[in-house]
Design a protein around this nucleic acid. Structure first.
Length: 251
DNA sequence: ATAAGGATGACCT
DNA sequence: GGTCATCCTTATA
């Protein structure tokens, strides 16, 4: 961008939209064509307007794509967890939305298909996708990706040397955020269904085979609810291999 | 105002 | 298998 380029501002905010995000707003089409890749099209809002336990497994195989100063970074979703909204019976005690809206989790109570990004343990971030219609919370935590585009930049973002193993890049909820540069200040609340957004979830037609269903990882409540979903046998799936689960085919 | 602890990852044995 | 860094969010007073 030139020095005298027009500065874009977002209504109600006191900081200009970052330059890379302004370019994203102009559309990804030519850029993606320039890279010679095909990342399909953004998933529509209706895809996310359902229970997280239905949306979660259907997100497997879709592509998370992020427009960054270091180019487009993208990975295929290979592992997720569902967290249910407080309107469910029984409510999900492991969910951030469990006790109702707070300043942190308010995105979850908004419309579906938006990014809920939060900081954890002082040094990491995790990314979720909001589900259900406006007024009802519920989300899907992205736990692992298979890197698809921008692997060299992901390695830089992760502090690894070029050519690092794929699973070291994006296998883990905070690893994938670090690889793509996802943060709460930068990405919380972004509409993932908008083809102008700097962060999108896209469908490139990838066909999912067998799916592994297990309990969720790293929680202390509802420890045996079967709400973790992963592509069976994929090397980029995080967590212990000892975790018992069942195999299913999506219906 | 203050205290408790977390949907983790890296490194150690 | 275990430890721990590190800070923000939340609950409570």
């Amino acid at each position: 961008m030139e020095e005298n380029a027009q500065i874009a501002w977002r209504a109600g905010e006191d900081a200009p939209i970052p330059l890379f995000e302004q370019r994203a707003l102009e559309g990804w089409g030519t850029l993606l064509a320039g890279w010679g890749f095909e990342l399909g099209h953004p998933l529509p809002r209706g895809f996310f307007e359902a229970s997280p336990e239905r949306v979660g497994p259907r997100l497997l195989g879709k592509v998370l794509a992020c427009y960054t100063p270091g180019g487009v970074l993208a990975g295929r979703i290979v592992e997720v967890e569902a967290y249910l909204g407080p309107h469910n019976d029984p409510p999900d005690p492991a969910a951030h939305a469990h006790r109702g809206p707070t300043p942190r989790n308010r995105v979850l109570f908004g419309p579906a298909g938006h990014a809920y990004v939060y900081a954890i343990y002082g040094r990491y971030s995790c990314m979720n996708v909001s589900c259900e219609v406006e007024g009802h919370a519920g989300c899907v935590l992205l736990r692992a990706l298979e890197p698809v585009m921008g692997l060299a930049q992901m390695a830089v973002n992760r502090g690894l040397e070029a050519g690092a193993a794929a699973r070291l890049l994006t296998s883990g909820p905070s690893r994938l955020c670090q690889a793509l540069g996802l943060t709460r200040p930068g990405h919380n609340g972004v509409d993932l269904t908008d083809s102008g957004s700097a962060l999108q979830i896209r469908d490139d037609g990838f066909a999912v085979g067998e799916v592994l269903v297990t309990a969720r990882i790293g929680i202390h409540e509802a420890v045996d609810w079967p709400l973790r979903f992963a592509l069976m046998g994929h090397t980029c799936v995080s967590g212990p291999k000892s975790l018992i689960g069942k195999r299913v085919l999506l219906g």
